[in-house]
Write a protein that binds this DNA or RNA. Structure first.
Lengths: 213, 213
DNA sequence: GCGCTAATGTGAACGCCGTTCACACGCGCG
DNA sequence: CGCGCGTGTGAACGGCGTTCACATTAGCGC
């Protein structure tokens, strides 16, 4: 993709790729307009032909990173045996959480980029946030929760708002362990905690009286 | 505290106060060395007589904000009737979580400043993070968990690592609702979810098989 | 009371950042 | 072939964190 003279040819893609690479090593803070332009071999102002500005660039990159999270979840989901509906549902909700958390550990920079927040729940179903698996991370969660309902482990009433509960616990744990106060936990303890978090979610969803308004 | 001529008199405190004010309205991003210097009526370089740099300034401010979180928790704790040991323990763990979450809603900027992460678990017991109540937010959580053990609701085994679980769920929920995808929830739904989160934690701690390594 | 030292504040400078704008280039359509 | 419009350029603006030589003065030892 070396540029042929004056024009680049595929600058938008080049910038996004450079952005992901920059975030991989430096997190969202490591993504700067000028740096990406430098990597792409282009003047800083050229970036503005393809993105409104720094913020929109980060937003686009975040969606790409979210797609990667969705696929990381999919990888974990693939390991769940699907012979029994109830076992699959249990496995699915766990795999979804564990996939989220493992991605955070393996790619802390991209994880922080993906969930740098900003952006309402609208992004939960953004096409650009879907991975090769065809779903966004949020949609993966919805799928696992639906499976719990199908398996009779969750009532419709309990189901309402379950995304918020599950996401909160798993997201919080990921944040605290990625660049938060729990970041220096050893791998073994970390895995054990992750398992407890996921178990807590499963129990909490099912047994909570569903105080939903 | 108007400066008397060349010297300020109490610049460090003035900078910290200005920093909290800036973070209150603009979050941690709103805290800049130059801005604080401007507010304090001093040259930017003067800041470096009192702080190593921007990062140390933010760290110091974060501890101050944490102290405020601890006191917010204390306010909630004060409402818990203490006649019955078991009821108090239940109330305490809930109040701790709710205090954390309500603070996040009331002072989103300061909350984001307080838990901008960076900084190991060492900060959990930092003297500067203690509020008027004499405890850091983490120590408030420890206290509530200890109460659960005292009341016989939690075994010593379950108690191990319970901080991580509880903190994760509550912190995650706070993050998602403060500036995350769940930020546009209406107040009523938000409160209902918060209650469910706290209930999930209580159940999850007690009934989890404690997969601690 | 006096003079010196060390602490504190100044102002200019450096290199980074995001962003803007007038301008240069050249692909592809008429 | 000519030209328009999409794309890239380069210089500039203001803001940032940070540094450094220098100015000021509080407070201590005498």
């Amino acid at each position: 993709m070396a540029r042929s003279g004056y024009f680049h040819g595929d600058l938008r893609r080049a910038l996004l790729d450079a952005g992901l690479e920059a975030a991989r090593s430096g997190g969202p803070e490591g993504v700067s307009v000028r740096e990406l332009a430098r990597v792409a071999g282009v003047a800083p102002s050229a970036v503005y032909r393809h993105f409104e500005g720094h913020e929109e660039l980060l937003l686009e990159l975040a969606l790409r990173a979210q797609a990667m999270v969705a696929d990381a979840m999919e990888t974990e989901l693939a390991l769940v045996p699907s012979d029994d509906r109830r076992a699959w549902a249990d496995g699915a909700i766990a795999a979804t959480g564990i996939g989220y958390i493992r991605f955070a550990w393996q790619e802390p920079g991209l994880f922080r980029l993906a969930f740098r927040t900003r952006g309402d729940l609208g992004a939960a179903h953004d096409e650009r946030g879907r991975g090769a698996c065809g779903r966004t991370p949020y949609e993966q969660l919805e799928r696992a929760l639906d499976a719990l309902v199908d398996a009779g482990e969750l009532t419709e009433h309990e189901r309402a708002g379950a995304e918020a509960l599950a996401w909160s616990a798993v997201h919080g744990f990921a944040m605290l362990t990625v660049d938060g106060p729990l970041r220096s936990l050893d791998a073994q303890t970390r895995e054990a905690f992750a398992a407890r978090i996921v178990e807590m979610v499963r129990l909490g969803l099912a047994q909570c009286a569903g105080a939903q308004a």
